[in-house]
Amino acid sequence: MDELELLKKDWNKSENQYKSFTDCDIYKMSHKKSSSIVKTLFYISVAEFVFWILINVLPYFSSETYKESLDKSYHNPLFVGITIFGFVVIFIFMYLLYNSYKAISTTDSAKKLMESILKTRKIIKYYVIYNLVVIFISVPLTFYFEFNQNIEFHDQVEAFNSKQMLFLYGFTVLLTGVFLLVFWLFYKLIYGILLKRLNRNYNELKKLEV
């Protein structure tokens, strides 16, 4: 006899072996907190937004001199434009994320459900990449602005010989690179652990189509 047929025979016979939960048990259970992967993903994405907004806002309140220099920068239309752009981007990401969360439905097919979750994760990923790119660009940009506006810094750099200049450039690039790499690995680790099983199962379903 086919193995599965034997199993089927027993499977249907074993209906009574399970502990039967009462109405009250089920009522209580349905009101417990979910620990699903979607919920975790949601918390991570909220943390992500809070983190990056704090990174942008906190320095403003942390030091008086920085606050002053920033206030001065707001006279520059370019700086105002960049700031507004930053907020617009955050809102766009929030909107996209909200929509993709709404699209996650447990009554879809297994594959569709996995795709919706992966899509949500992708939006978070793009948000992180966006932030990392902004950091990457803002380092030389800050350097440039400081060079043009801060006379002391300007004179200091001017006095450098070419070897020192090269060192300064190299050091800045290296530091930014290491910083980005650490961040990237950190994200890889968080999402890697969280979505390992989902990715494996999704690939298993995908594999069939080839």
Partner: peptide, 18 residues
């Protein structure tokens, strides 16, 4: 029928082992 879907989806995709 509806339960099969939600149940399997939870087991395969949503559930994180406690």
């Amino acid at each position: 029928t509806w339960m099969y879907r939600v149940g399997l989806n939870t087991a395969i995709t949503l559930y994180r082992k406690s």
